[in-house]
Design a protein around this nucleic acid. Structure first.
Lengths: 132, 132
DNA sequence: TAACAGTATGTAATAATATAACATTTACAA
DNA sequence: TTGTAAATGTTATATTATTACATACTGTTA
């Protein structure tokens, strides 16, 4: 059973923007886009982003310092994320592959470490950019 | 056959520092540490870091904006990196697991994307921190 | 060895990303 | 209705990284 999160005003404004954009967005680009809606300061954006990441509605693309809406059916996968990133056009998409996620979620080694979360980023050329 | 890279003066200073530290280091902490050796500006640090990353002598821990010396025997794995990160003590170590790297290097999906590189970060609690 | 190309360096300024500190307000359960 | 957690607003500042431009070093080859 998934907890329903009622987004606050700022969280909703910012989530909607990222979601509609269809791709990764950077914090200050988000800020610029929501200033007309009353969100004036970086901290307001970062606070909403932190919360949205925490509840799995968005993910941070670490290598790009950007945020993307969760593309998995019900955002259950905030602790097990995988992305493919085109190094030419910077298109990003979330990889949803149950074998991969199962493999990584079950991964353990002899370090004695208990893994509770992972983030995987694949880089390469997307279909379009490959054929250029 | 692996290409031998002769490190330049700044590259050597910075690599030695990171390597000796035994863990991840942040750019401005590196800067602070090498100022007595004549490296005065951030750009000098970032240029050396870029090069060291490029040739695989160090890796960037994206989620921490930090750099760590490659812990694999011969630094051949700069395009296929995996790390375990303790969220409590921030200890980081490079995972060297041939099954894992084989699995990920061979990963492909139906997106039409050609993957040439990946970076994986596992998070959790290390042995020490678990038992606290 | 002169000319060249590629790589590395030095320096100043500034851009881009993110957080600290503090005051106030809202949501909502006890 | 009072207590508390979450969210907001605002200013300032910390941290991370790059642009732009000038100069110097290293190794190759004509």
């Amino acid at each position: 059973m998934q907890k329903i999160h009622n987004l606050s005003k700022n969280q909703k404004i910012i989530f909607d923007l990222i979601d509609k954009s269809g791709g990764p967005m950077k914090a200050y680009s988000i800020l610029f886009n929501v200033q007309k809606r009353g969100i004036k300061a970086p901290l307001q954006v970062y606070r909403a982003l932190d919360k949205l990441v925490e509840i799995g509605k968005i993910h941070k693309i670490e290598s790009r310092n950007a945020f993307i809406a969760c593309q998995n059916s019900s955002c259950q996968v905030s602790k097990a994320t995988a992305f493919s990133i085109c190094e030419s056009c910077e298109n990003v998409s979330e990889i949803s592959n149950s074998k991969l996620s199962k493999y990584l979620s079950n991964f353990s080694d002899n370090s004695g470490m208990k893994y509770s979360k992972y983030n995987l980023e694949f880089f390469g050329l997307c279909k379009k950019c490959k054929s250029k």
